[in-house]
């Protein structure tokens, strides 16, 4: 039984391939030379079986688990693991990567900013903000704001320069509401089960 089923979602097994939704990477390889999306999504899904999904789940928990470790956990042959992984990686459906903490990159201040836009298309405001390296993520959102942005800065002293030199130059911002990050309590690495 999947987590979704356990939570009482109807038809969970039909809709959900993974127990927990995934963070994807934004993959330039999905865009072909002609600028159009490559591949047929449904065909790729059809090529994926339960064994593939189980291997991916193991790799989500530990991306550097050996073929032998994965094989043992799933009670399958190590050669099956390596063949499946190679196929998934070569077809561009799987990437196993190291993710690093904000602190590794010298970012120690995280601020969420909700932006009310007026007199300009919210998409244009978001696109312009996205050009700044300090803007880690930018979304068009529903609700009281039009644009939501995650800002990462080396330290608080950098905030003044960012606001005066960059942020305040962007047209169409009617108001901002900031939330200063105190502690990151969870950041989807699927390790919740052993967090306690």
């Amino acid at each position: 039984m999947s987590i979704d089923q356990a939570r009482g979602f109807p038809n969970a097994e039909k809709r959900f391939r993974f127990d927990v939704p995934f963070r994807y990477w934004q993959d330039p390889s999905l865009i072909g030379n002609d600028g159009k999306e490559t591949g047929e999504g449904m065909d790729d899904l059809a090529d994926f079986d339960e064994t593939d999904l189980k291997i991916v789940e193991q790799l989500r928990r530990n991306g550097r688990a050996t073929h032998q470790q994965i094989a043992k956990a799933l009670d399958i042959a190590p050669t099956t693991v390596s063949a499946r992984m190679r196929r998934m990686e070569e077809s561009g459906t799987l990437r196993v990567v190291a993710v690093s903490d904000f602190a590794v990159h010298g970012y120690h201040v995280l601020i969420y900013i909700g932006i009310e836009v007026s007199g300009r298309a919210p998409g244009d405001v978001a696109e312009e903000l996205a050009q700044f390296e300090e803007v880690f993520a930018a979304y068009l959102v529903t609700g009281r704001y039009e644009v939501s942005v995650l800002l990462a800065l080396p330290n608080v002293d950098d905030l003044s320069q960012f606001v005066t030199r960059k942020f305040s130059k962007v047209a169409g911002i009617r108001s901002i509401t900031q939330s200063i990050g105190l502690d990151i309590i969870k950041f989807g690495l699927d390790s919740v089960e052993d967090a306690e």
């Binding site: 990567v97 993710v99 993520a137 930018a138 979304y139 959102v141 529903t142 009281r144 990462a152 950041f187």
Partner: peptide, 21 residues
């Protein structure tokens, strides 16, 4: 309060809050 992201304009991959885990 819930706010739905209707479009992701930018997302930086690979940099996360590992230490939280």
């Amino acid at each position: 309060e819930t706010s739905i992201a209707v479009k992701t304009v930018k997302f930086t991959n690979g940099v996360v809050g590992v230490s939280a885990v």
